[in-house]
Every structure is written in structure tokens, then in C-alpha cells.
Simulated assay, not measured.
Amino acid sequence: MTDQLQQKIDQIKEELQVDFIALALSTVDERTKVRVIRWQYVAGNTNQNYKRIRLQVGKGIGGIVWRTGRAFQATKLQKQPEKLVELPITRMEKLETIVAFPVVETGEVKGVFLLGYRSETDVTEAFLAVAKDKANELVVYL
């Protein structure tokens, strides 16, 4: 299933013409019993630093979307040092504009789907609708 999921991520990146795409999933640390969110499937990355990011619920893009169950959108990120600290994936991948959606199954967040551009980009309502549909398509892989 992991190969299929990576192929789907790659396909969505091409379809939506975004610079970066990622899916975060969570595990519960056996020792601490704390939920840890990690970017596990990516396309368009410039380095492997995303693998080091460990988020908790409520922290970073993945954690915020996981906690709220709502979409998250931000732009002009490289001009906001405080955001670059709070949102490490944007700093590591030099993302300027992002949108993220929860991947929800039966009312429970199963993942976080992130789309990003390395340049300032106007995100239209039509794009948001298509991107949300793509997030919903990922449920069958989880």
C-alpha cells in the first residue's frame, strides 16, 4: 500500500501543478504514549530534512490541522520569521504559499495533506475545492 500511496502523491502533484506535496501520518510513541505526527509521503522535496520533523498535536501545520480538523492556509511565509519557526516544513522546503487539509475517515483525522508553492501564489476557491477532493481520495490508502 505504501508504494501505491507514494504514486498517488506523485500523481496529485502533477495534476495540481504544485511545487511540493506531503502527507503526514501519526503514530503513538510506545514509551511516552504521545502522538507523533511525521511527513511520511512527499513529492517535490528539495532535501530529506522533512524526515527529521516530529510534530505533536497542535504544533506545526500537521499538528494544527490534526487538532482542529480544519483546513489551514498561509502565504508570504518566507517574510514571517515567527511562522518559519512555528512551521518547520515551510522553512526546510522554502515554501511561500501553503494549504493543508485533514484527511478524515468517519469523523476522525487520519492524516494531513499539505500542498505548497515556493513562490507567492493566489489560491483560488476552485483550487481549494479540487485540493480538498484530492485529500478525501487519500482516505482509501490509509
Results as ranks from 00 to 15, higher is better:
residue 1 M to I: 12
residue 3 D to T: 11
residue 3 D to H: 09
residue 6 Q to E: 07
residue 6 Q to I: 07
residue 7 Q to R: 08
residue 8 K to F: 12
residue 9 I to T: 05
residue 11 Q to W: 12
residue 14 E to S: 02
residue 15 E to A: 01
residue 17 Q to C: 08
residue 18 V to L: 04
residue 20 F to L: 01
residue 22 A to M: 13
residue 22 A to N: 10
residue 23 L to V: 15
residue 23 L to D: 02
residue 24 A to G: 06
residue 24 A to P: 04
residue 26 S to P: 09
residue 27 T to K: 09
residue 28 V to A: 10
residue 32 T to Q: 10
residue 33 K to F: 10
residue 34 V to L: 12
residue 35 R to N: 05
residue 35 R to W: 04
residue 42 V to Q: 02
residue 44 G to N: 07
residue 45 N to I: 00
residue 46 T to W: 05
residue 46 T to S: 06
residue 46 T to K: 08
residue 49 N to G: 03
residue 52 R to M: 06
residue 56 Q to K: 13
residue 57 V to A: 01
residue 59 K to Y: 07
residue 59 K to W: 02
residue 63 G to P: 02
residue 66 W to F: 05
residue 67 R to Q: 15
residue 68 T to C: 13
residue 70 R to T: 13
residue 71 A to V: 04
residue 73 Q to K: 11
residue 73 Q to L: 14
residue 78 Q to S: 07
residue 79 K to P: 01
residue 83 K to H: 14
residue 83 K to Q: 14
residue 84 L to A: 00
residue 87 L to R: 01
residue 95 L to T: 03
residue 96 E to R: 14
residue 100 A to C: 14
residue 100 A to P: 11
residue 101 F to I: 12
residue 103 V to H: 10
residue 104 V to M: 07
residue 104 V to A: 06
residue 105 E to R: 11
residue 107 G to W: 04
residue 110 K to S: 11
residue 112 V to E: 08
residue 113 F to Q: 06
residue 116 G to K: 02
residue 119 S to A: 14
residue 120 E to C: 10
residue 122 D to C: 10
residue 127 F to H: 09
residue 128 L to A: 05
residue 131 A to Q: 09
residue 132 K to A: 08
residue 133 D to Q: 15
residue 134 K to S: 11
residue 134 K to D: 05
residue 134 K to C: 09
residue 137 E to M: 15
residue 138 L to N: 05
residue 140 V to G: 10
residue 141 Y to S: 10
residue 141 Y to W: 15
